[in-house]
Computed example of a mutant assay.
Amino acid sequence: MLYALLCSDKHDHLQLRLDTRTVHLDYLNSLGDRLKFAGPFLGDDAKPNGSLVVIEAADLAAAKDIAANDPYAKAGLFASVDIRPWNWAVKNPDNK
């Protein structure tokens, strides 16, 4: 099952995001094939203010565990994280 992690940063926490970015990216890369895609949301100022991460997980509990272990989450960057089951219906490279 795919899960979309919709993460919103706390206001005025850009420096924390920048300081934690390298370990966050290392963590995402360590997920291997479980990570489908990821990237930041951008504000009107074109600066990151949240994240979209799509992962494959056995169930919601496993998706929550992946989200909780993200270095951004551990550092307290996010004001909220919404985890939702997601169906990749269009342009899914696994459906050739």
Rank of each mutant, 00 (worst) to 15 (best):
A73C: 13
L5E: 00
D59P: 04
L28F: 06
A61V: 15
L28D: 04
R21L: 05
V23D: 03
V81N: 01
A89Y: 09
M1D: 08
T22M: 03
D19H: 03
S8N: 12
K47I: 05
A46L: 14
G43Y: 02
N29C: 10
S80D: 10
F41C: 04
L28C: 05
V90S: 09
G43C: 04
R34K: 15
G32V: 06
G39V: 06
R21T: 01
L14P: 02
L52V: 00
A79M: 00
L6C: 10
T22H: 04
A68Q: 10
I66Q: 06
D33W: 00
D12T: 09
Q15G: 08
K47C: 04
A62V: 08
D59G: 11
S51K: 05
G43H: 07
D9Q: 01
D45R: 12
A62R: 03
T22L: 02
W88G: 06
K47W: 02
K96E: 14
D59C: 11
K36R: 15
K74S: 06
A61K: 15
A62E: 15
S51V: 08
S30W: 07
R34H: 12
A4M: 12
K96F: 13
L2S: 06
P93S: 14
N92E: 13
V90I: 15
D9V: 01
